[in-house]
Simulated scan of single mutants.
Amino acid sequence: MTLVVRPEQPSDVAAIESLTTAAFLDAPHTSHTEQHIVNALRRAGQLTVSLVAEDGSTIVGHVAVSPVAISGGRNDTEHWYGLGPISVAPARQREGIGSRLMEAALAELRRLGAAGCVLLGDPHYYGRFGFRSEPRLVLPGVPPEYFQALALQGGLPSGIVSYHRAFEAQAPAP
């Protein structure tokens, strides 16, 4: 496997959409709108980090990172991002592609000077990267153990986290 992780290019958009659809097709706890979320973030100019994992000429993974808002408005609530969705082709899962994408996304956030990152996901998987459930950070309507944070510099803020309205995206009307 010659895996290359690189920034998304305009010519990758259709492949990312297909990959994301396939990756979440049989996933539990999803509304199957992840591909629409990525597209809506891109259209809104809110896709801060968009990386693909490419094996040869085939895109086998993707990760999206976008800004989040944290109530409180203090300095420690600025420069926080939400990671996700992260997608790996079903036939290529459990090969370390997701881990490579996570590490690359976190490295890019550090390069950008991000204060921290939040995500919604399996605590056992994301704990490997330093993410922890933090009672001071809340995503309403979500079991707290699945909403996790990682401070990249400084401390953890307190407040209610809001994702961009692109996360409300649905399938376009036919």
Rank of each mutant, 00 (worst) to 15 (best):
T2Y: 09
V5W: 14
V5S: 13
V13F: 14
A15P: 09
A15I: 03
T21E: 14
T21M: 10
T21R: 15
A22Q: 11
F24R: 05
F24S: 04
A27P: 09
T30G: 10
T33G: 13
T33R: 14
T33C: 15
E34T: 05
V38A: 01
L47A: 00
S50W: 10
E54F: 10
G56E: 13
G61C: 05
H62D: 00
A64I: 13
S66Y: 10
S66Q: 10
S66R: 09
T77A: 12
H79N: 15
W80A: 02
W80S: 01
L83P: 04
I86H: 02
I86M: 15
A91G: 09
R94M: 06
R94D: 10
R94S: 12
S99I: 11
R110E: 12
A114V: 14
C117Q: 09
C117A: 15
L119Y: 03
L120S: 12
G121T: 05
H124L: 13
Y125N: 07
Y126I: 05
G127E: 06
G127L: 06
G127S: 08
R128H: 08
R132M: 14
E134Y: 10
R136M: 13
V138W: 06
Q148L: 12
A149F: 08
L152C: 03
G159K: 03
H164Y: 02
A171D: 14
P172K: 02
P174T: 03
